[in-house]
C-alpha cells in the first residue's frame, strides 16, 4: 500500500489535488462566507509578507539593473536601461519572485499550520463545532492568497522599480521623472495585464497546494514537516508551469 510505483503515486496525487480544488470551488460558491477570517488571513498572508517580498523585490530591481548595464553600455544603449529593466521586472521577475517568496513563506506556513491542525485534531474539532473547516480554513486562505499575492506583486513592482531607479543612478544619472517617464512609456497594458493576471493564478497555486498538503497531512509531527516541505516544492514547481502556460497564452493572444 505504501510502496506504489512513482507514476501511480504521482497520478493519485494529481487526482487528489484536482478533487480538492473542485471541493474548494464547491465550498466557495455555496453557503456562507467566512469574511472576518478572510480579512484575518489576508492580513497574515498579505501584510505580513510585505516586508520579505518588498526586500526581495528591491534587491532584484537593483541587481537586475546593475547586471543589465554592462551589456547595454556595450551597445551604446545605456539610455535604454530604465526601459529594459522595467519591462523585465514587471513582466516576469517580480511576479515570479513574489510568487516564489510567497510559496516559501505562505505555502509552507499554510501547509504547516493546517498540517498541525489536522494532526492535533483541530480540524475535526472545528467540524464537530459546526464550522465547515473547508470553508473556514481552506476557502479563506486560498481566497486570501489569490487576492493578496497580486497586491504584493504590485507593491513589489513599485519597490523593484525604485530599486531599479537607484541602480540606474549608481553609475549613470537618470532623473526621477525621466525614469518613471520611460517606465510608463515602455510598459503597455499588454505588459502589465498578463503579468498581473498570472499572479492571481500564482496566488491560487500557493494557497491551494498549501491547504491541500496541510489538510491532508499524515499523523505525527513528521507529517507536518513533510506537508510544509511538499507544499513549497509543489507550489514552486506549479508557479513555473503556470508561468510557462501564461506566457504562451499571452503569446497566442498577441499580448507581447
Amino acid at each position: 500500500m505504501i510502496n506504489k510505483p512513482a507514476l501511480i503515486r504521482f497520478l493519485e496525487e494529481a487526482g487528489d489535488i484536482t478533487r480538492f480544488t473542485l471541493r474548494f470551488f464547491r465550498e466557495l460558491f455555496h453557503g456562507r462566507f467566512e469574511f472576518n477570517e478572510l480579512l484575518r488571513q489576508s492580513f497574515f498572508i498579505g501584510y505580513k509578507s510585505l516586508g520579505l517580498v518588498g526586500l526581495t523585490a528591491f534587491i532584484m530591481g537593483l541587481v537586475i539593473t546593475i547586471q543589465s548595464r554592462p551589456t547595454l553600455v556595450e551597445f551604446g544603449a545605456e539610455a535604454w536601461l530604465p526601459k529594459m529593466v522595467s519591462i523585465s521586472l514587471i513582466r516576469e521577475i517580480v511576479p515570479v519572485i513574489t510568487a516564489l517568496i510567497c510559496a516559501g513563506k505562505i505555502g509552507s506556513g499554510i501547509g504547516a499550520e493546517l498540517g498541525s491542525m489536522r494532526v492535533t485534531e483541530q480540524i475535526d474539532a472545528m467540524e464537530v463545532s459546526g464550522t465547515n473547516p473547508m470553508k473556514y480554513l481552506v476557502v479563506t486562505r486560498v481566497v486570501a492568497a489569490v487576492l493578496t499575492i497580486p497586491l504584493l506583486a504590485l507593491l513589489a513592482d513599485a519597490i523593484a522599480l525604485y530599486g531599479g531607479y537607484l541602480g540606474c543612478n549608481i553609475h549613470g544619472a537618470v532623473s526621477w521623472r525621466l525614469f518613471w517617464n520611460q517606465v510608463f512609456e515602455t510598459n503597455t497594458y499588454s505588459d502589465v495585464i498578463p503579468a498581473i493576471t498570472k499572479t492571481f493564478f500564482f496566488g491560487f497555486a500557493v494557497g491551494i497546494i498549501g491547504c491541500y498538503k496541510g489538510y491532508n497531512s499524515r499523523k505525527g509531527t513528521e507529517g507536518v514537516g513533510r506537508s510544509a516541505n511538499q507544499a513549497v516544492v509543489i507550489a514552486s514547481l506549479l508557479i513555473f508551469i503556470l508561468d510557462l502556460i501564461a506566457v504562451q497564452i499571452a503569446d497566442v493572444l498577441g499580448l507581447t
Partner: peptide, 18 residues
C-alpha cells in the same frame, strides 16, 4: 450539525485552536 450540538467531543489532543 443540528445533531452534533447535543454531542460534546473531547479530543485526545485537546484540539485547542493555537
Amino acid at each position: 450539525d443540528q445533531a452534533r450540538v447535543r454531542i460534546g467531543f473531547l479530543f485526545q489532543s485537546n484540539a485547542l485552536y493555537d
